[in-house]
């Protein structure tokens, strides 16, 4: 087995060896349910779709994804196990990817456990299941982008709480850049071109398409580049700690 998968497996097992994982899954499902059915007025909308469900994901993940990823590197540095890990026959990239994939799989599992929502809309009406699949794909990539940024902040510090806060701030920026109330404000001072450029960095702008059932490669590319950039930065940070 490849070293990357052995690292991922260990990391994933780590989630389930502590009660935190189960607590997280329960909280995730409860909050997702609450936002969808209560705050999202799922039933009152009277539409057979998951707009009320996916619409909340950028906000839902804002706290939950940093909570899942904050320990990835900060804990490794705090406990000193990073020295052990990186002197095993693995490259830094294998270690970074392995850890990232483990957490991403964990988030994918949390997302998969929301399947009763899909069942519900299918019982109640005749939704566009293609759009629902697109929504799930978008949501997974959204979580991946937040997670990669959390990886990066957790490499910056030995303190998980600091990593968490930094990650929330970064992710919040990625939401607000394209959040309507904010863009409306920005338009008053800046030219529309500037506002559009800022909005182009927003996960909300790029997540919109997925929710509507449109799989646009540009949107996909956006999330993939955020993930790629953040993981690359993680590598640079980890190397710089060792360079002295």
């Amino acid at each position: 087995m490849n070293a990357l998968w052995i690292i991922a497996k260990r990391e994933l097992a780590g989630y389930f060896n502590s009660p935190v994982a189960y607590v997280f899954l329960v909280i995730f499902l409860l909050v997702a349910g609450f936002l969808t059915f209560t705050a999202g007025a799922f039933f009152e909308r009277g539409e057979a779709g998951l707009g009320a469900f996916f619409g909340w994901h950028p906000w839902l993940y804002l706290v939950l994804v940093p909570a899942v990823g904050m320990r990835l590197w900060s804990e490794e540095r705090r406990a000193g196990t990073i020295e052990l890990l990186l002197t095993l026959p693995v490259t830094t990239w294998q270690a970074i990817l392995g850890k990232f994939l483990a957490s991403w799989l964990f988030l994918a599992l949390a997302l998969a456990l929301t399947f009763p929502v899909v069942l519900t809309v299918n019982v109640l009406g005749e939704p566009d299941n293609g759009a629902i699949v697109a929504g799930y794909v978008g949501s997974l990539f959204l979580a991946g982008a937040y997670l990669a940024l959390t990886c990066m902040t957790s490499a910056l510090t030995r303190n998980q709480v600091v990593a968490f806060i930094l990650a929330v701030v970064l992710c919040l920026f990625l939401i607000l850049a394209g959040f309507n109330p904010v863009t409306d404000l920005l338009v008053r001072w800046a030219s529309p071109a500037v506002v559009d450029t800022v909005a182009a960095f927003s996960v909300v702008t790029h997540f919109d398409g997925f929710q509507k059932g449109v799989l646009d490669t540009r949107d996909l590319l956006f999330f993939v580049s955020v993930i790629g950039f953040a993981l690359f930065a993680t590598g640079v940070i980890i190397r710089s700690h060792r360079a002295g």
Binding site: N17, A79, G80, T81, E83, L84
Partner: peptide, 17 residues
């Protein structure tokens, strides 16, 4: 690295395992 066995000074191991 494949040839080396290393005991770091911290003797750190994953605590939850």
């Amino acid at each position: 690295k494949r040839l080396i066995g290393y005991l770091p000074e911290s003797a750190a191991a994953y605590p939850e395992m």
